[in-house]
Design a protein around this nucleic acid. Sequence first.
DNA 1: GGAGATGTTTCAAG
DNA 2: GCTTGAAACATCTC
Length: 264
Amino acid sequence: MPELAEVEFFRKQWDAGLKQPILKLKLHAYVRDFRGTDCARMLKLLPGSHLLESKGSGKQMLFSFSHKRWLSLHLGMTGKLTVEAPSYVPSKHDHLVFYQKRQALVFRDARQFGRVCFHEGESPGWWLRRGPDLTSQRFSLAHVAQFLGRHRRLAIKATLLLQPGFPGIGNWMADEVLWQARISPRVLSGQLSPPLVRRLWMASRQVGRVSLRTIGKDFSDPPAKWLFHERWSRKGKCPRDGMALKFGTIGGRTTAWCPRCQST
DNA sequence: GGAGATGTTTCAAG
DNA sequence: GCTTGAAACATCTC
């Protein structure tokens, strides 16, 4: 599931454990989620540390612990964060569990496309070098125009999925942005006129802002007129004009669009 | 049984 | 050196 707003929702689930010590840690060191990270060191250093705070940016999460210890977490395709009872017994796909006095914080990921990394010292480099959040001042029209220019030969749908340019946008959000901006997903990024680039920029911010206020807050549905509600079924219709949606593969991903109002 | 799934990384080719 | 497109990753669901 997880794109920008879903990631934010899951990140906040673990707020239940802020400012409290980690008593014990269980993890499945053999799963793909831990590739490249030192699980033994994590198991040694995190118990006894306090979970201090968490931050999110795009699809990335960063949890900070006392003594300058950090955990970055990406949910991949099927990752979830939940809160369970302190006596929780991990099941097959619960790859990481923090036990605290009043609850257990659980990371579950069936497909193992997610990623957990342990860091020590100053905050990890990727955090400082991350792309501009959709809802921030840094996500400017100039940024979008420049990014589209760099990927001018890529279909706009594929460009929207590139995290350095549009952090947090995933498959359904990209379709939503293009539908709201009335732009065909197949248009090459370099072919968009300045007014269309501006519309794409505004739609990206709008979809980011509104999805964070709904899905991101309590997993409630985004507005009823959004493409979101129609794109999951091949019978979906355009919420604007009732046309049957078209489906195809663009940038390697399933894409839904309205052939009438997204003709350019 | 087979296809497809809301994501990244890697690699070869242009 | 940069960009692009396809394959690979591992498991579940329809």
